[in-house]
């Protein structure tokens, strides 16, 4: 039981990191950014390259190096996110929603098959594999790397929450989500704030990508596809457009999956997750914390 909860929270914190970007972007420009999962994949590959190039310095695994690689990968994927918005979405800002949505799907393919061109179709093995001796806590098997990754994820979410809720730029972000035109009248440069939102969301997805690579050990060009859909599911469960909702939704989805697989068997994991998505869309489309009825795409 405690093991199931721990596993759920662990996987859930990855979902939450990716879901935040999904949800923030949706909140601010009402776009389901289907390329978001691929930014996570890009994070993994960036981490892979960076770790590979400094692997001489590494023993089994060293936390400062991993943190540095994490930070650099976040900067890189954040920048890519900004470029994606500028190149693919901004020119279509006043076009029908569907056009932008299809562009997002196209962007997803560009990233997936671009990486496939560079790294090839077969999975790559991450240069570091975070493993460690388990600690037993209330019968749950917990490893040190798991704790480290959870702490990093929690710290990132904490700083994000502070930024969005307390800073001037965070206020501007929330104001655009509520009323773009009124924000313009406050002097908010909407383009800049949208860029910043893409940067933050993509950086967090990149962070999750590096951490997933380091934890699971194997990465491939399609790894972002399923997690993108899972993050979308998490965002919907929490209430899309809502920051706390994305965090909560990620953890809830992790727990649902963990318990669901325990009852139904591992092969039912994704089926169960997406059944939850359908159930939420049917019975509670606003999610756990969503207030407004979201527009249908």
């Amino acid at each position: 039981m405690t093991q199931l909860i721990w596993n759920g929270l662990f996987v859930g914190s990855f979902y939450a990191l990716v879901a935040i970007g999904y949800s923030m972007v949706y909140g601010i420009i009402k776009l389901l950014n289907f390329a978001h999962g691929d930014v996570y994949m890009l994070g993994s590959f960036t981490g892979f390259l960076l770790l590979g190039s400094v692997s001489g310095l590494l023993g089994t695994w060293s936390l400062p190096v991993l943190l540095l690689v994490l930070l650099l990968s976040m900067l890189f994927t954040g920048t890519i996110g900004v470029i994606i918005e500028k190149v693919a979405y901004r020119p279509l800002r006043s076009s029908p929603r569907l056009a932008v949505l299809i562009t997002a799907v196209g962007m997803s393919f560009v990233l997936e098959y671009g990486i496939r061109q560079i790294f090839g179709p077969s999975p790559r093995v991450f240069p570091v594999r975070l493993a460690g001796d388990p600690i037993f806590f209330l019968d749950a098997r917990i490893t040190l790397p798991q704790i480290v990754l959870m702490v990093i994820a929690a710290a990132l979410m904490y700083f994000l929450q502070r930024y969005v809720m307390k800073s001037r730029e965070g206020r501007a972000m929330r104001s655009i989500a509520l009323d773009t035109q009124a924000s313009l009248l406050m002097g908010v440069n909407v383009n800049k704030v949208i860029s910043r939102t893409f940067f933050i969301g993509s950086a967090l997805a990149g962070a999750a990508g590096v951490m997933a690579g380091a934890y699971y050990g194997s990465i491939d060009f399609l790894m972002g596809f399923i997690i993108g859909l899972k993050a979308f599911t998490a965002a919907v469960i929490g209430g899309i457009g809502n920051l706390y909702g994305a965090m909560l939704g990620g953890l809830v989805l992790g727990l649902l999956e963990s318990f669901g697989t325990n009852w139904l068997g591992g092969q039912w994991r994704d089926v169960f997750a997406f059944a939850c998505l359908i159930a939420f869309l049917s019975f509670k489309p606003t999610g756990l914390l969503g207030e407004r009825v979201s527009e249908r795409m």
Binding site: R168, R171, A172, R174, S175, L178, D179, A182, S183, M186, G187, V188, E291
Partner: peptide, 16 residues
């Protein structure tokens, strides 16, 4: 801005 407090609304007036 309906879900932001009155104070936050005023702060946004001073965004620049």
């Amino acid at each position: 801005f309906s879900t932001m407090t009155v104070h936050e609304n005023l702060q946004l007036g001073g965004y620049l």
